[in-house]
Simulated scan of single mutants.
Amino acid sequence: MKKSIAILAALAALAAPLSAQAHRAWLAPTATVLSGTDAWVGFDAGMSNGIFIPDHAAMNLAGLVITAPDGSTAAPENMIRARYRSSFDLHLTQPGTYKVANVMNGLMATYTENGEQKRWRGQAADFPAALPAGATDIVATRTASRIETFVTLGAPTETVFTNPGEGLVLIPVTHPNDLAAGEAATFKLANDGIAAAGVEVTIARGGTRYRDNPEEQTVTTGADGSFTVTWPEAGMYWLNASVRKPAEGATVASNASYVAVMEVLP
Rank of each mutant, 00 (worst) to 15 (best):
P232F: 12
P232S: 10
P232Q: 09
P232Y: 11
E233Y: 07
E233F: 14
E233M: 07
E233S: 06
A234H: 01
G235H: 05
G235W: 06
G235A: 08
G235P: 02
M236W: 03
M236Y: 04
M236F: 04
M236A: 08
Y237W: 07
Y237H: 01
W238L: 11
W238E: 09
W238F: 08
L239W: 12
L239K: 11
L239C: 15
L239D: 09
L239Q: 13
L239G: 15
L239R: 13
N240E: 15
N240L: 13
N240K: 15
N240V: 12
A241S: 12
A241T: 12
A241V: 08
S242R: 14
S242L: 15
S242K: 15
V243P: 00
R244K: 14
R244I: 07
R244Y: 12
K245A: 13
K245V: 13
K245M: 14
K245E: 14
P246M: 13
A247F: 01
E248T: 00
E248C: 00
G249P: 04
G249K: 06
G249I: 06
G249W: 08
A250Y: 06
T251C: 04
T251V: 10
V252N: 15
V252D: 11
A253W: 02
A253E: 03
A253D: 09
A253R: 07
S254M: 09
S254L: 09
S254R: 04
S254C: 11
S254F: 03
N255T: 05
N255S: 06
A256Q: 03
A256M: 07
A256S: 14
Y258C: 00
Y258D: 00
Y258I: 00
A260C: 13
A260W: 01
V261F: 03
M262T: 04
M262N: 04
M262P: 05
E263V: 09
E263W: 04
E263T: 05
E263I: 05
